[in-house]
């Protein structure tokens, strides 16, 4: 057992000094060896980037809304179901899963995915590869996330959007049967 270190032993009080020891803190500071040369003023370096990013975002959205007019079909009619009736594009992956199994596709798997996503930082706590894209020490985590989440999400949405026709049958986009109006 180490003897408790008294304040005076580390920093003897000296009446000639105008400063003194305030507090002893355990642990290493995250700011250690982070010199001021790596820091810049947020004004103007951060602000100008944020302003430019806003301008770019706004212009892209404005251009899209001028040149790509959002669709508006005929008024809703409960007696005329389209074939196939499709969910919004971001739920077409779900709809694709539902076509295999109603419960597991629509609720079971999505629910597990959300819980799984939230669990990631509590399962993968190893302090390596932070702040780098695709760090080599994290190859396993990166591969699992890509194969289990990113690729299935994107592939299922593309499949449901472009490859599903009447009666949720599989058709290539160039051979999609046209619904008679």
């Amino acid at each position: 057992m180490a003897k408790r270190v008294r304040e005076e032993e580390i920093f003897p009080r000296n009446p000639n000094k105008t400063y003194g020891l305030m507090e002893l803190v355990k642990g290493s500071s995250p700011r250690v060896d982070r010199g001021p040369e790596d820091m810049v003023s947020a004004w103007p370096h951060l602000l100008i980037r944020e302003a430019l990013l806003f301008a770019a975002t706004f212009l892209v959205i404005l251009a899209l809304s001028v040149w790509c007019v959002p669709p508006l079909e005929k008024q809703a009619d409960a007696t005329k179901p389209p074939n196939p009736a499709k969910a919004p594009w971001y739920f077409l992956g779900l709809q694709e899963l539902v076509s295999y199994d109603a419960f597991w596709g629509g609720l079971g798997i999505p629910g597990l995915v959300i819980v799984g996503l939230m669990a990631i930082p509590y399962l993968d706590r190893h302090h390596s590869g932070i702040g780098r894209w695709f760090a080599r020490s994290r190859t396993t985590a990166v591969t699992l996330f890509t194969v289990l989440f990113v690729i299935p999400t994107i592939v299922l949405i593309i499949l449901g959007t472009y490859f599903r026709g009447p009666n949720w049958g599989f058709y290539p986009p160039w051979g999609m049967p046209v619904e008679p109006q």
């Binding site: 669709p71 508006l72 079909e73 005929k74 008024q75 809703a76 009619d77 409960a78 005329k80 179901p81 389209p82 009736a85 499709k86 969910a87 919004p88 739920f91 779900l94 709809q95 539902v98 109603a102 419960f103 629509g106 609720l107 079971g108």
Partner: peptide, 28 residues
């Protein structure tokens, strides 16, 4: 999803019908 219904066109109506039916699968 909630905004998708508001235009009240065919696209909106049937997309929400499909989506709500997915919620109905919780009967399982």
């Amino acid at each position: 999803f909630t905004g998708y219904l508001l235009p009240w066109d065919q696209l909106a109506f049937w997309a929400i019908t499909v989506g709500a039916n997915i919620a109905g699968k919780a009967d399982y």
